[in-house]
Amino acid sequence: MSAREYLRVSDLSVKYGGLLAVNKFCMSVEQGEIVSLIGPNGAGKTTVLNLLSGFAKPSGGRIDFQGHDITGSPPAKIAANGIRRTFQQNSLMFDLTVGENVRAGLHTRVSTGVFASLFYSAAFRQEDRGIRTEVDRVLDAVGLRPQRDVVARNLPFGDQRKLGIGIAIAARPSLLLLDEPAAGLNPDEGAQLTGLIRQLRSDGITIVLVEHDMRVVMGVSDRIVVLSGGEKLAEGNGHEVSTNKEVLRAYLGDGSWAMPASAHSENGQQEG
């Protein structure tokens, strides 16, 4: 594994009831990159994310992160390695406030335990103050500071999305896996999201992005990997991928929707 190769996926496969949902998938991500995983519906993109984050166990292949073999590790252990993810459906603690949700994301950065709390030690109090400051920092980063005491259930959809990302970045992850963050967002929110993702990259977070919204994909990706039927179809930058015949056939043949002809800008696109 080369020095800058952060994440390496080798021949990753998973079988569900005899069906290969992901078949010998290979991918490598360098530190600081944003790699997008795209493909028609049912291509297995979220399954790959689940495999990377430990929510699914592979039946074959290998995942290495920063030199460690994390294949088949349970989610909490993968998170301990500095990997975080978001979920396709907003997966939040809906009955708790925004601030409390973000606090949960800080779990791995809290060091004082029950006994420190029991004796209300100085270390505990200090860390508690520090946690509040950190929560505010995260909320500022995703633009939810004014909503800190709002119960998550009462947030508008777009803000719930932001909260999900906020929880994931709270612990300053090394690798962030985003599962269709733009789904359900209007164009303005999509643009905000693009800006946020770019900001996360400049904060030093490596990102793997599963996404359908091509404006977002084109707006942030260093590289794009195309998945279809559980197999890698193509890989390259935006231009390479959007002019790849196999890719076009996978999308057009699928009947879902076509790739936009132009490769870049994220503004002024018509819907779809």
Binding site: S53, G54, F55, P74, P75, A76, A79, A80, R84, R85, F87, S91, L92, M93, F94, D95, L96, R103, A104, G105, H107, T108, V110, S111, T112, G113, V114, A116, S117, L118, F124, I167, A168, A170, A171
Partner: peptide
Amino acid sequence: SRTGHAIVAIRENAALAQSVGI
């Protein structure tokens, strides 16, 4: 404490709790 917050997080959303290292 950290333990208490983790326990409540498990109740509220176990998958989310796992994803943040609990």
